[in-house]
């Protein structure tokens, strides 16, 4: 039988019941019984314990959300502050969308805490910030002593003012030496600073021709020419010509035409009659030429000084980098413009 059923069973009478009454004994048991601790009382009431645990968990989540919101607000304040001081860099991967204005995507590190970095990605057309939809995710990197573990990447959802987790970064350890710019060389400096082109006049030249048809020239034992217009004589001379024609322009200048087959080239030149005129013209040419040479020397000296300064700076950074601990490059994909938090 599962239950014992008693019908019309007489209970103990009053006297017998009173025999069992002993408040002192009950009080003694009460005093002797170990006091229930809070934890024990909680264990006896699992439903209440579950409710308290739930309330606590919700409280923690709410507190975290509120604190997170506060931190987000602070991040934006930092961002505004950082905007004043940190120039943004155009991002090479962000190509403008077809048909859109030529928006340029910029990125910048807004604030950096020991374990958190905020990065902002935004677009500008000219000087104006614009909304812009990235045609594809672009890769952003954060360098620093952020640890070897992959970090969480959060994007700030400005619509709901919450941080949305996107995923984890990929990590690569890199030596500070690897992050140094390429060691400067003199060649790179020279190629980066080309010599200024000095348009020197062609030096007075002589023509191996007979001036018998030009008595005013034939009278002189040697005639040199000072070129006034056209392709430089030295260049024309290299091309080789079959014939040349001289025509008096009757203004003290002559047109000299070079011919080879059907190809012709013409310059205008002034005859330097007599050795004095030649010497004068040559002196004038040299007067210009040494000045250009000095410019070249000064330019080369400037290049050398800048190169040596850059090399010294590089050596200093390299020596420092060799002593520095390795850095960790964290890379993540940013699908949209906005504020990102890596922690």
């Amino acid at each position: 039988m599962k239950y014992t059923i008693r019908i019309d069973n007489a209970p103990p009478d009053e006297a017998r019941i009173k025999q069992h009454m002993d408040f002192d004994k009950v009080y003694g048991q009460y005093k002797a019984a170990p006091k229930l601790g809070t934890w024990q009382r909680m264990r006896n009431k699992p439903a209440r314990m579950a409710m308290i645990a739930t309330i606590f968990a919700v409280g923690v989540l709410l507190f975290d959300a509120v604190a997170e919101e506060g931190r987000a607000g602070k991040a934006y304040q930092n961002a505004k502050h950082a905007l004043q001081s940190q120039p943004a860099k155009p991002h090479s991967q962000a190509a403008p969308a077809l048909g859109s204005p030529q928006a340029t995507v910029f990125y910048r590190t807004l604030a950096q805490a020991p374990s958190t970095v905020w990065v902002e990605l935004f677009a500008k057309v000219g000087e104006k910030r614009v909304a812009y939809t990235l045609p594809q995710s672009i890769s952003l990197t954060v360098d620093g002593a952020m640890g070897t573990q992959a970090l969480s990447v959060h994007r700030f959802d400005s619509l709901h003012s919450v941080w949305e987790e996107l995923g984890k970064t990929s990590v690569k350890a890199i030596s500070p030496s690897e992050m140094l710019p390429k060691k400067p060389t003199l060649e790179t400096f020279i190629s980066a600073s080309p010599m200024p082109v000095v348009a020197l006049q062609t030096a007075p030249f002589a023509l191996d021709v007979s001036y018998e048809y030009f008595p005013e020239l034939d009278a002189y034992d040697q005639v040199h020419w000072e070129q006034l217009t056209g392709e430089p004589f030295t260049a024309l001379q290299k091309q080789g010509w079959d014939d040349l024609a001289l025509r008096d322009l009757e203004d003290g200048t002559y047109q000299i035409t070079f011919e080879r087959g059907k190809t012709r080239a013409a310059i205008i030149a002034r005859p330097l009659k007599g050795s004095q005129a030649y010497r004068d013209a040559l002196a004038q040419q040299r007067k210009e030429s040494p000045k250009s040479a000095e410019d070249r020397i000064a330019h080369a000296e400037g290049v050398r000084v800048r190169y040596e300064a850059a090399l010294a700076e590089w050596e200093r950074k390299a020596a420092s980098a060799r002593k520095a601990p390795p850095l960790y490059r964290h890379t993540f994909q940013a699908p949209t413009l906005g504020l990102y938090k890596v922690q």
Binding site: M1, K2, Y3, T4, I5, R6
Partner: peptide, 9 residues
């Protein structure tokens, strides 16, 4: 022990 059901008729 089993639970007792006590009643009167």
């Amino acid at each position: 022990r089993s639970l007792t059901i006590s009643t009167d008729s």
